[in-house]
Design a protein around this nucleic acid. Sequence first.
DNA 1: GACTTGAGTACGAATATAACC
DNA 2: AGGTTATATTCGTACTCAAGT
Lengths: 328, 328
Amino acid sequence: MVDVARRAGVSHQTVSRALNSPEAVLPDTRRRVERAMREMGYRRNSHARALKTSRTGMIGVVSQGNTDFGPTRMTLAIEKAARERGYATALSIIHDARPDTVESTLEFFLSHGIDGIVVITPVPALAEAAKQLAAKTPVVIVTSGLWPADNLSVAGIDQELGARRATEHLIRLGHRSIAHISGPMDWFDAKGRVVGWRQALAVADLKAPPMVQARGWNAENGYTAAAELIAGRNLPDAVFAANDFIALGLIRALEERGIRVPEDISVVGFDDVEASGYFSPPLTTVRQPFEDAGLAALELLLDDSEHLTSVPNFIAPQLIARGSTAPS
Amino acid sequence: MVDVARRAGVSHQTVSRALNSPEAVLPDTRRRVERAMREMGYRRNSHARALKTSRTGMIGVVSQGNTDFGPTRMTLAIEKAARERGYATALSIIHDARPDTVESTLEFFLSHGIDGIVVITPVPALAEAAKQLAAKTPVVIVTSGLWPADNLSVAGIDQELGARRATEHLIRLGHRSIAHISGPMDWFDAKGRVVGWRQALAVADLKAPPMVQARGWNAENGYTAAAELIAGRNLPDAVFAANDFIALGLIRALEERGIRVPEDISVVGFDDVEASGYFSPPLTTVRQPFEDAGLAALELLLDDSEHLTSVPNFIAPQLIARGSTAPS
DNA sequence: GACTTGAGTACGAATATAACC
DNA sequence: AGGTTATATTCGTACTCAAGT
């Protein structure tokens, strides 16, 4: 900056002003400064700037589970929203939920000096750590099933509503015995979808068949869980699977036993993963508005005024009806 | 740091030394300092540190196409490798390939002061910009089909080899007419897979049927391309699809016309996307070692000595044989 | 003399205050 | 006086060099 100043024949102070409040400097001087900057390929040193202003223009995103669909998509959505608002995104993905790993990751971010952290936390472990964190830096938790606390905002996608919509769709088609294969119950999302499923059934005065739990979110887990479902005495008319991959595993298991989808059983998934429209049959599912949720999270993080909101900002997912569901 | 020093009854200099070269300070003094740091919840200011050392412990990852399988997985792999080596990862995803967008993104990183950049570049546009960048900061390009240049290392996955393995698998099964549905040909990966397919056919003395191009990497594109393939006079014995989703769209298109997979036509995909083992039929495909490639990229970036390598570090993918291929 | 500690300064930008026209 | 520019100091850490044991 000093060099630029010398070249432009002004003081470094003038250069600084030309950058930070251009209107406070004579147009003529400003142009000289700008030209000098261009000629020298000057680039502001963000560390010196951060040192003085203690703002970095960088937010941290902490996520968990590197390949799961939801967290991944949410991460990308937040990155996009952040960049549109001029913020860079630092990413850290936690592979195990051990408290010390979690803490060291959060410390890592904190020590890298960021303006705020978005924690994508599908399971309680991370959420707890995030609460601790909120004392030291602005934090937004992206999840379902949690409520805002002090210094802590919450955004996410309304899992219960999504599950209700899936189940209601099956009810509208005339199904009466609607089973659910849940995801791993330590996930907030899995719990929310169970609740939504039960709600919809209750409203329609239907009994909930015994629930089957998948041990993970993959097709393999769905396949295994399906065996358990089928072993039960009465086959349901329809199944709401906790996500698309579980639905896929289920469909495969049914197919192997000669049970046709949707003729014998209707199946609904959740997520609308890529290509789910080309499964056979094309999968009816619930699409999650990740980008909207990411945007909401970012706004909570950046707008201090909003930080006081005491109601979580949960966004509504959308039902995508396709070929895996049919009237009973 | 001054506060810590005061509390520990030493100078700020001693505190600094206790942090940076602990062995150069008396164990007794060090313990006093450490205790003071703990008591005060001291945390090193990374900006001041970066200002002085001009190293941030942060690398940038620039990628393109937010939902495509390859780039996404590669990004996550690099983040993992980086964190294992104590580096944080800043992420920036480019949604369009307009030169000014690209340049401003790279500038953005540069001005945030990072120790190096990994550019995941499936298409040439980004690669060009990355070359410019290499003059200013260490850069590693992750791609296929490019060669290292000055200050520019290249790592990636050997697409040609993967395609050869897929095609050879079909040849071994006795197929003679092996078609290919390529990905969008502006992608290096798409080109590499075409080359590998041709190579394998040439070695086996087989003629390559006319190639069909998909206009994107999605199932929909595969479905559309399949129509074109089927419209040709002679149906091939087997098809090597440029990725799993294209394969899925193809299978669906075949199925709709009563052509069975694998009885009538064998199909191989590429990527081994989640759940591809539960497609119907389970998809034979080529798995890409993203984590290995990410690690390789990071090592190239961080080990200056290696920066001189003139041969790209391409890692071998692996064939996963499943039910969508059968002997002819 | 080898080892440990302390004082002072530089990194690069921002800002309060003073000086200029 | 009113609008611009310049001077001097600050942020927190690392490092050179000198002083102390």
